[in-house]
């Protein structure tokens, strides 16, 4: 566990010093929000499409953070050094995932109020549920994103392959998060039909976290 925190803290510190991906992701999420406001007719409120819109923004902005996760270790062969260090592979993965989760959470905390103002959405009706949905879905995104960032880090066509692979894998999480957020925004809360999405999110997180932890060594070590 100590190793995990070391890696997470290392990633967060290097991000805090440069603020490269977080600035880019926050700015990019604003750009998408504004673009969407032109596409959609937002005369009333965000009840119908709010959830979908929000998670598309997070998915696109989040990809900026996640893609960099392993790619940033390429300069000066840092990745080789990390793999050669006494850290177990799963600790490296979990540390990176935790750091990414924190970064995505920051981006979401910036985007949520802005979204609320621009699209007239009330986030505070079910604060607990919103927080839970965000946490579960963000962790799912983080795990897939970090894993595929590791998978593609040495590929020739990394920038091309990453979105082609990551977005289809993310559809389940995004779909569930969109449905739940829309239900919460519309004021009905989580009713009988929505539970399947909560279960899907939990199942997705458990399955892919364990798969990633089991397989990360195969990816990193030749």
């Amino acid at each position: 566990m100590r190793h995990v925190l070391t890696i997470a803290w290392k990633d967060l510190r290097s991000e805090l010093r440069t603020k490269e991906s977080i600035n880019a992701a926050a700015a990019f999420s604003m750009v998408i929000l504004v673009l969407f406001s032109f596409v959609l007719d937002i005369s009333g409120d965000a009840r119908e499409f709010g959830g979908g819109l929000l998670w598309l923004v997070f998915a696109f902005a989040g990809a900026l953070v996640l893609n960099r996760s392993f790619a940033r270790e390429q300069s000066n062969d840092c990745l080789d050094a990390l793999v050669a260090s006494p850290l177990p592979g799963w600790a490296l993965f979990l540390g990176k995932a935790l750091a990414n989760f924190a970064l995505l959470a920051v981006v979401e905390l910036i985007a949520l109020p802005v979204f609320g103002i621009l699209f007239n959405a009330d986030w505070l009706r079910f604060p607990g549920w919103i927080a839970l949905t965000c946490a579960l879905a963000t962790w799912g995104m983080t795990v897939i994103g970090t894993m595929f960032s590791a998978l593609t880090v040495n590929l020739r066509l990394r920038e091309l392959m990453l979105p082609v692979l990551v977005y289809p894998m993310l559809i389940p999480v995004l779909m569930a998060a969109m449905q739940l957020t829309s239900a919460l925004l519309s004021g009905t809360g989580i009713t009988g039909d929505d539970w399947v999405w909560v279960k899907l999110l939990i199942g997705f997180d458990i399955i892919f976290t364990s798969l990633s932890l089991a397989l990360i060594d195969v990816i990193l070590v030749n």
Binding site: T152, R156, M161, V164, M169, L211, L215, V218, I219
Partner: peptide, 24 residues
């Protein structure tokens, strides 16, 4: 993805992991 990796060992490894993810 398989088409973009030239080295056979690396291709097999990465593809196997993706195949398991995809099966979900």
């Amino acid at each position: 993805l398989r088409k973009t990796i030239d080295e056979p060992g690396q291709r097999a490894r990465i593809a196997a992991v993706v195949s398991l993810f995809a099966f979900v």
